Simulated assay, not measured.
Amino acid sequence: MTRHSLTERAALADLLLAVGPDAPTLCEGWTARDLAAHLVVRERQPIAGLGNFIKPMRGYGERALRRRAETPYEELISQVRNPPWWSPQSNRLADPYANTGEFYIHHEDVRRGSPGWQPRTLGADFDAALWGNVRLFSRLALRRFPAALTLQAPGLGEITAGAGGEPARLIGAPGELTLFIAGRQRASRVQIEAAPALADRLRTASFRL
């Protein structure tokens, strides 16, 4: 089976070099340089990520990101392309689960950060891998959303999520559903079948693992 995490990593590194450090991304307030710095800190300084969960650590994580962003851009992209020999995310056992979705999402953050983008044709094998990620993470990301959600990937199946209540169905390719539950709703091509007010809430909600 293809290691999609590796191919997405390489493709993202190529794109980051091509667009340059000041290119916009879907991550609000982040340029391509900031996004690259985030990826490097995530793998090389994993303790900095604790700021996402432990408020007193937030300042440490922000400082680590700022310092890493000062690295010369080509060197920074080399660090994205070539992960450390071991980290919690990039060791061989964890890599497919920790990095396939991560690098797909951030690849699309750069691709879709500027006008004129079109969805990629990913192929059946990659679609299946991303659907596995959706199945694994959607119940966590959507667990507090007050609705009975069904996520459907045509040809691959459907899963249920949400805290219960009014029904809604999200229909899309696995990559588009991945982007939707990762908070990139405005740039994802997902069909929402729900009452208008609930559909509006889904389009603007902040989903977090």
Score class of each variant (00 low, 15 high):
residue 1 M to T: 11
residue 3 R to F: 06
residue 6 L to T: 13
residue 7 T to R: 13
residue 10 A to P: 02
residue 16 L to K: 10
residue 17 L to T: 13
residue 17 L to V: 12
residue 22 D to K: 09
residue 24 P to A: 04
residue 25 T to R: 08
residue 25 T to Y: 07
residue 25 T to H: 08
residue 26 L to C: 09
residue 27 C to R: 11
residue 27 C to P: 06
residue 28 E to H: 10
residue 28 E to V: 11
residue 31 T to C: 04
residue 33 R to T: 09
residue 36 A to E: 02
residue 37 A to G: 13
residue 43 E to N: 10
residue 43 E to I: 06
residue 43 E to G: 09
residue 46 P to C: 08
residue 51 G to K: 05
residue 53 F to L: 15
residue 53 F to I: 11
residue 53 F to A: 14
residue 55 K to L: 12
residue 58 R to P: 07
residue 60 Y to W: 14
residue 61 G to Y: 00
residue 64 A to E: 13
residue 64 A to D: 08
residue 68 R to T: 15
residue 70 E to T: 14
residue 74 E to A: 15
residue 76 L to D: 00
residue 79 Q to R: 15
residue 82 N to A: 12
residue 85 W to S: 14
residue 88 P to Q: 10
residue 91 N to L: 01
residue 92 R to I: 07
residue 94 A to H: 03
residue 95 D to N: 14
residue 99 N to P: 03
residue 100 T to Y: 10
residue 103 F to S: 07
residue 103 F to A: 08
residue 104 Y to W: 14
residue 105 I to G: 00
residue 106 H to Y: 12
residue 107 H to S: 03
residue 110 V to H: 08
residue 112 R to Q: 05
residue 113 G to F: 09
residue 117 W to R: 13
residue 120 R to T: 06
residue 121 T to H: 14
residue 123 G to W: 08
residue 127 D to M: 07
residue 135 R to F: 01
residue 136 L to E: 02
residue 141 A to M: 15
residue 144 R to A: 09
residue 146 P to H: 03
residue 151 L to D: 01
residue 154 P to I: 13
residue 161 A to T: 01
residue 163 A to I: 04
residue 165 G to M: 09
residue 166 E to C: 13
residue 173 A to T: 13
residue 175 G to N: 00
residue 177 L to W: 02
residue 178 T to C: 12
residue 182 A to R: 05
residue 183 G to V: 00
residue 187 A to E: 05
residue 190 V to H: 03
residue 192 I to W: 05
residue 193 E to R: 13
residue 194 A to Q: 04
residue 198 L to M: 11
residue 202 L to K: 04
residue 202 L to M: 04
residue 207 F to A: 02
residue 209 L to F: 14
